[in-house]
Amino acid sequence: MNRQALISEIENYQSKYPEEMIYRGRFLDLLSYDDCFERSLLFGHITASAWVLNPSKDAVVLMHHKKLDRWLQPGGHTDGDEDVVRVARKELEEETGLRNVLLLHDGIFDLDIHPIPARKEVPAHEHYDVRFVFVTLTPDELTKNEESNQLAWIPLTDISSYVANEISIMRMVEKSALLYI
C-alpha cells in the first residue's frame, strides 16, 4: 500500500463510530504533508498498529508499554514507509515475536488519533494510527522485547479492566465481535 492507496482507503472508510468519521478528515489533511510518515513532523505523524486475535478470536495480545505505562496493541512509527500494513506487521513481529499471522480483514480495521506526551526533546504531538486486524495461528510464540514491561493474551471480556475503558481499544473490542471468517 502506498500513500495514494491509503488516501483512497481512508476516503472510502466507513464507520458507525462518529469519532472515526471525524478522524477520517483529519487523516486526509495530514496526508497532504510530504513528511507525514516521518516522526520529524512534530505536530503529528502516521503510525500503524496491529490488533491481534488468538485462533479462537476470544483474546487479543496487549503489551504494557514501558514509556507510556499503558496496555496497548503492538504498533509504532512508519519512519518513512508508506505501506502501513507492512509497518503494522513488522511492529507486531518485533514487539510480540509472532510471525505466523494472517490479515483477518482486508483493509483498515480502525482509525484513531491520540495524544503522545512530551518526552525529552520531542514535544507533545499526535499519532494518527491506522489499525489492522490479524489472527495468529501460533499464540504460544509470544516473545517480549525491550519496549514492554509485559506481554499477554487478554480475553476480550477482560480488556476494560486493563485499559480503563479507553475508548479506542474498547471500540476495537466491539468490532472484534463482528468479525466472521
Rank of each mutant, 00 (worst) to 15 (best):
H77F: 13
L31M: 15
G76S: 03
D29T: 13
R89H: 12
L179S: 01
S15A: 09
D110W: 02
R86P: 02
P117Q: 14
E19N: 00
T157P: 01
S161T: 14
D79E: 14
L111H: 03
Y128A: 11
D129T: 13
I108P: 02
S49L: 03
W51F: 15
A152K: 11
Y180N: 14
L151F: 06
S161K: 15
K67S: 10
K120P: 01
L111T: 02
L137C: 09
F37P: 08
N100W: 07
Y162I: 07
N12K: 11
S160Y: 02
E121P: 06
G80W: 00
E146R: 09
F27A: 03
R131T: 08
G80T: 05
A164W: 12
P55R: 11
V87S: 01
R99M: 04
K90L: 13
I46K: 05
V130T: 02
S8V: 05
A5W: 02
C36K: 06
E95R: 01
D112A: 12
E93I: 12
L142I: 12
Q150S: 13
D79F: 06
R171G: 09
L137V: 04
K144L: 15
L151V: 05
L41Y: 04
R39E: 13
I159D: 00
S32P: 01
K175Q: 02
L72N: 05
L53Y: 00
W51L: 07
R89F: 04
E11R: 12
R39N: 10
T136W: 04
V163K: 03
T78L: 13
D69W: 04
E121H: 11
M1V: 03
E9R: 05
S176T: 10
R26M: 06
A177F: 03
E91F: 00
G25F: 08
Y128G: 09
A48G: 01
E9H: 05
V163D: 10
L103D: 02
I116N: 05
F109K: 01
P123N: 03
P115S: 08
L103R: 00
P18Q: 13
E174N: 09
K90A: 11
V61K: 07
F109G: 04
Y128I: 06
M21L: 12
R99V: 05
W71K: 11
Y33H: 12
P18V: 05
G25I: 10
Q73M: 15
T47V: 11
H125K: 03
C36A: 12
K67N: 07
A164N: 12
D110Y: 06
G75E: 12
R171N: 11
V135I: 14
R131F: 00
L103Q: 12
E174A: 14
I116T: 11
I159Q: 00
G107F: 11
D129W: 01
I108R: 01
P18E: 14
D158G: 02
N145P: 07
E93A: 15
V163Q: 02
E82H: 13
M21P: 02
L53W: 01
L53I: 00
T78Q: 00
L28I: 14
L102A: 09
H114W: 12
D58K: 14
V52H: 03
V163C: 10
E95V: 08
P74Q: 00
E166T: 06
K144A: 07
N2Y: 04
C36D: 07
W51Y: 09
L156Y: 07
E93C: 09
R26D: 10
S176V: 14
E20H: 03
M170V: 00
L137I: 04
E95M: 12
G97Y: 10
P55L: 05
N54F: 02
S148N: 14
P139N: 14
A59H: 01
Q4F: 03
